[in-house]
Design a protein around this nucleic acid. Structure first.
Lengths: 127, 127
DNA sequence: CGGTATCCCGTCAGATACTG
DNA sequence: CAGTATCTGACGGGATACCG
């Protein structure tokens, strides 16, 4: 978390803290999936839902709306019948992929240790 | 999210996916604060609670337990009266600080844009 | 097609009270 | 001091049904 004065921990759970804002978005269940799905180019609503897999329409709508609100994604509606809506990453959205890649790399290299530790911990701590 | 075969989006919300596992932990409300607080060295339970600020004892306990289970934090209890318990980062926990720093840097550089975009968006979309 | 509206339920944070 | 136990309300997410 960004420090308020010194060190790392500023004022606890401050909704204004940049890191907090980012974490609240990135921590969202579907945000990272959606950004990843859009990495290769624009997608329509249904394509996006199919690619992400497991997400309901309602929740995908909410996720996309939040991303659009944050300026990470652009929604483009073509006035046609039937409707055609495309979603694409903004430059800001694309710039987020770098930190996400760093996270992903860490995960790929270290999650095995985490999982192993979990099993060990669980064996010790119950029956 | 780590890909199952190719591209970025693997199998949707797979609890086994390394990136998912990491995000589920990092996305937690207090995890990053606690890791940040422990960056400078070990802390006792109460010190930690005071530093993080706003976290209840129950929730801090749960957060610490999860971090200990994942092997990111070590809990050391000294058999004294009154009890003395210290928490410190493991090497694994410390290694996580690098990706978190990258995230924080991105946040510090770009969140202003996000917030500005939010206000703009909100103005357009209601009353 | 691309949503919105509605209902429902599980999870979880917060507050409070208590214990070794 | 460092927790645990319990109750509570808020919220997020899924399922379903419907609309322009």
């Amino acid at each position: 978390m960004t420090a308020a004065v010194s060190g790392w921990v500023g004022d606890g759970y401050d909704p204004q803290c940049p890191t907090r804002v980012l974490l609240d978005r990135v921590g969202d269940k579907w945000t990272v999936l959606v950004i990843g799905a859009l990495a290769d180019g624009p997608l329509r609503f249904t394509e996006l839902r199919d690619r992400v897999g497991g997400v309901s329409g309602k929740v995908l709508t909410a996720t996309l709306r939040a991303l659009a609100r944050d300026g990470l994604v652009i929604r483009t509606a073509y006035p046609q019948i039937p409707p055609r809506v495309e979603y694409s990453l903004t430059d800001l959205g694309r710039s987020l992929q770098t930190p996400l890649d760093v996270l992903r790399t860490w995960a790929e290299q270290h999650i095995a240790q985490v999982v192993a530790h979990r099993e060990e911990f669980d064996e010790e701590h119950d029956q």
